[in-house]
């Protein structure tokens, strides 16, 4: 959360500076009475930099993906006791077709 958020704020600042530069450039064009054909190269570079930082922030700030597979390591709620020999299970999970050996990883 922290690093991505800071990068996003930085990207927004760069974008606002690019906007300000473009406004000034338009004012300058108005004085010398020329047409606007795209922003100057420095603004384009700033925009691309801001875009890159924002893409990074937008992908990293919202959080990580969590695995949805039922037998992945991240989704195990409990770790079974070390001595498995005397445990017996008889519950509704046996209706599911998953391999029971997958759950017995220590």
């Amino acid at each position: 959360m922290g690093a991505g958020f800071v990068v996003g704020v930085l990207g927004c600042l760069i974008l606002s500076h690019a906007a300000y530069s473009t406004v000034q450039y338009r004012g300058m064009l108005k004085i010398v009475e020329e047409e606007f054909n795209g922003p100057p190269i420095s603004v384009v570079i700033e925009l691309l930099l801001g875009l890159a930082l924002s893409v990074w922030a937008g992908l990293s700030a919202p959080g990580k993906f969590l695995s949805i597979l039922p037998d992945s390591d991240e989704n195990r709620m409990v770790s079974l006791p070390a001595n498995l020999d005397f445990l017996t299970f008889n519950h509704r999970a046996r209706a599911f077709p998953c391999d029971p050996e997958l759950k017995l990883k220590r």
Partner: peptide, 15 residues
């Protein structure tokens, strides 16, 4: 959502 907003701002500044 965030990247569409950022993309919109960039497209606007770029003209």
């Amino acid at each position: 959502t965030f990247l569409s907003i950022i993309g919109g701002v960039i497209a606007g500044i770029w003209g």
